[in-house]
Write a protein that binds this DNA or RNA. Structure first.
Lengths: 149, 149
DNA sequence: GTAGGTGCAAACCTTTTGCAGCATG
DNA sequence: CATGCTGCAAAAGGTTTGCACCTAC
């Protein structure tokens, strides 16, 4: 799916949910969708400001919250108090491995992994809304380079 | 294993690593080990102060960092910028389900889940140091009570 | 016209840090 | 008796909020 289509999809969905579609939201959503990496709220703010200074920090945070709630964006704790986001349009669910040496993030997916989680939840009568699996460790390169401790 | 034994185990290990065993550390570790729930740094601080006011916030944070590094304590991002801790002496690894309605935390374990994670890491040449799987959703009670949204 | 959205700056919350003094090994 | 640890208070870093103004519907 291409950007313009994705944008319209988000706009239609947010309108349906009773949100207004403002200049700022359009700019923020467009910027977020354009990134195919993980980004922080501050990075997103910087990118938006670069294109249009009429975007404030508060609005970026507020819009990210709306997008996350609507399921267009997913937040990941970085472990140091902050979060990284990624948009989840046009690519399927995946989990993350985070290298403690260089900070690189690797994505992976395993259908059986998902099924076992669903089974575990079912057993407890728990209804899954979302889940996050993060594996921390050393990537291949950092093991060879003996970076860090 | 009982508390006094666990305490000695931690003390011996920290000494072996070159750390000093101070009054404050003993108090903090004892308190942390006494809790069989998840706790925040601030909660731990409050518990310690209650028993002995000679424990400062900074020392609690510093000690938690030492304990985490030594593998006696595990931290979990709460998603709102904070973290919860649990000690990992005397109970095996498990994952968590967090209820978005009432905040309750359920623990579960699935050996196959662990194996699939190891396999995925192996495929990427990644060496696992630790991992955290958190499932967010509604617990049985909150589904029935229609709490929240 | 009226909710709802925005920008600004200040508030917040958790965690970290600089520094002078203290206690452990 | 040297170094590591502690307490305090201030700083840091990320996020949220109060409020007056603005704008999409």
């Amino acid at each position: 799916m291409k950007l313009e289509q994705e944008l319209q999809l988000v706009e239609a969905d947010l309108r349906r949910r009773g949100f207004r579609w403002t200049l700022q939201r359009a700019a923020i959503v467009r910027t977020a969708l354009s990134s195919h990496e993980h980004f922080t709220a501050e990075e997103l703010l910087a990118w938006c400001k670069q294109k249009d200074p009429r975007v404030s920090r508060a609005t970026v945070y507020r819009t990210l919250a709306v997008l996350e709630q609507a399921g267009f964006v997913e937040g990941l704790d970085t472990g140091d108090g902050g979060r990284q986001f990624e948009h989840v349009i046009g690519h399927t669910h995946h989990d993350h491995m985070v290298c403690t040496g260089c900070g690189a993030i690797f994505e992976f997916h395993d259908a059986e992994l998902e099924r076992r989680q669903e089974a575990a939840a079912r057993k407890l009568g728990f209804r899954i809304e979302r889940h996050s699996l993060r594996i921390h460790g050393r990537c291949r390169a950092c093991q060879q380079n003996r970076q860090g401790s």
